[in-house]
Amino acid sequence: MPKVVRKLFHVGTLHTISFAVEADGVTSPAEDALKLMLTGMWAADPEAAKEGLPSDTQIDRRAQLVAGIKYFARHGVPSQRSCGVNALQSGIWEFKEGQKRVSFFDTDGHGSFTEKRKFKNPALADYPNDPHWDIPGFDQDIRLGHCFGKPWGQRTTEQEDLDETIRVREEDLSHDRAA
């Protein structure tokens, strides 16, 4: 099996962020969604449902989302002014801006990962004196997985989106294990 070539999203001081690749070795759901957002045509966006497509709001929020992900690559924590970071489940996290979500996971680059959880006690955190003490230290390689919309007021992520994030992660990591 030939080695998969992942498209690079951003190289930061702390993290290299790439797009996760599905089993076919080509499809990258996060890349596809971010391309659609660039033109305001990402149909899964709950905000765009009100405005219609193309959505200028979607284009603006995408710019904030991208800036936040790049900040995270440089600093390892979310910016105070742009997108947030949240733990989902099973070592899957999300970057969030408005109602847009981009799942991510970290990896050793060899087909495995260590599940990182959000800290609930600063005394047990990797960086207890940091304002973002609840965010763990991630491996250098971070992969962007699945994008999904989350309606305002919805506190939990839909099970189908959680399942999709895990599926994309497993398919992506299988490429590393096969190499």
Rank of each mutant, 00 (worst) to 15 (best):
V5T: 08
R6W: 03
K7N: 12
K7C: 02
K7R: 15
F9H: 02
H10I: 07
T13D: 15
T16Y: 05
P29E: 08
E31Q: 10
L34P: 00
K35I: 09
L36A: 14
T39W: 07
M41S: 04
A43D: 05
D45Y: 06
G52F: 05
L53H: 12
D56M: 07
D56L: 09
R62H: 10
L65V: 00
L65N: 03
K70A: 15
A73W: 02
H75Y: 13
P78C: 12
Q80N: 13
R81S: 14
S82H: 04
C83L: 11
V85G: 08
Q89T: 13
Q89I: 10
G91Q: 10
I92M: 10
E94R: 11
Q99L: 09
G111W: 07
G111E: 03
T114G: 14
K116L: 08
K116M: 13
A123R: 08
A125M: 01
P128C: 03
H132D: 15
W133D: 03
D134Q: 14
Q140L: 08
Q140H: 15
D141M: 11
D141F: 10
L144W: 05
H146T: 05
K150G: 05
P151M: 13
W152R: 10
G153C: 03
Q154I: 07
Q154M: 08
T157V: 15
Q159A: 15
E160N: 14
L162P: 01
L162D: 02
D163V: 07
V168F: 06
R169T: 05
H175C: 04
